[in-house]
Simulated scan of single mutants.
Amino acid sequence: MRKWKRVDGPAGPRFRSSLAAHEAALLRNLVTSMVEMLADRESSAPSDELADITGIRTGHSQPPEDETMKRLLPDFYRSRSEHPAGATAAESLNRALRSLHEPTILDAKREAAQRLLATLPEGGGKLELAEADAQAWASAVNDVRLALGTMLDIGPDGLDRLPPEHPMAGHLDVYQWLTVLQEYLVLGMMGR
């Protein structure tokens, strides 16, 4: 993976880089797996009669049980004890907000992932992204990083290494590569 280069033109900025064939295949597999996880969450949402009548989509009111999905779809209020009305009110508000907004959040995550997949060169090679595509890439790569980081149990202080015999040791290298990919892209988007 090469650093991203920003090229400003009359139609707006473009972002150029290239990926090796194995990098493109890995990214495609990771993003496709994440899209499947999001689809599973969406398809398991309960039906809502009011949504059928009004056309307003609703989703789950309960957070995901899976830790990876919890990281991708966190509660709206993380510290429930700090809510002025108490923990029960915060939980109720989280359920209502989740039910109303989760379908839109899933759509946005899926759209970003699909834009990445649509602009990812098959077999690797050079790529050039418009600004909207670059933003989609940054979002989708971040979601994949969050998912993989949760699976690796990476906390706020990070994780430098795993013992070589650890079954997820190779995945840490992938996580670090995704971090660099995202960082270079964001710096390129910032013009640095």
Rank of each mutant, 00 (worst) to 15 (best):
R110S: 03
T68I: 14
A169G: 07
M37P: 07
E131P: 06
V144K: 05
Q182V: 08
D75W: 04
K3H: 10
R145D: 02
D153K: 15
P103L: 00
V180T: 14
M37I: 03
P84A: 12
G188Q: 11
E42D: 11
L26A: 11
G59R: 00
A112V: 01
M151Y: 12
L73P: 00
R2M: 08
A11Y: 14
V174D: 11
D107Y: 05
E102P: 07
G170Y: 09
V186F: 01
A20F: 06
R14L: 12
L172I: 12
G191V: 08
G59Y: 07
R161A: 15
H171K: 09
T54I: 07
R95W: 02
L50P: 12
G155D: 14
P164T: 05
S43V: 05
R78T: 03
L159D: 04
L181C: 10
I53C: 11
S47Q: 08
H83L: 08
A118Y: 06
L93T: 10
A24K: 08
W4H: 07
G59N: 01
L73E: 00
A24H: 03
V35G: 00
L117R: 00
W137I: 06
Q176V: 05
S81G: 05
A130T: 11
P10Y: 01
D8C: 09
A85T: 00
R192H: 13
M69A: 09
R41S: 02
L100D: 02
V35W: 00
L148Q: 04
L120Q: 03
E165I: 01
G123C: 11
D8A: 14
R78F: 10
R145I: 04
T54H: 10
D66R: 10
G155K: 13
E23M: 06
R28I: 01
R2H: 10
S44K: 09
P84D: 08
A138M: 06
A11Q: 15
V141F: 04
L100I: 03
T58C: 07
G149P: 14
M189T: 01
L159F: 03
W137S: 07
A25H: 04
L187H: 11
R2S: 12
P167D: 05
A130E: 15
V141S: 02
M1R: 15
S92C: 03
L148R: 03
T119C: 07
T88M: 07
S79Q: 09
Y184N: 13
E91R: 01
M189K: 03
W137D: 04
E42S: 12
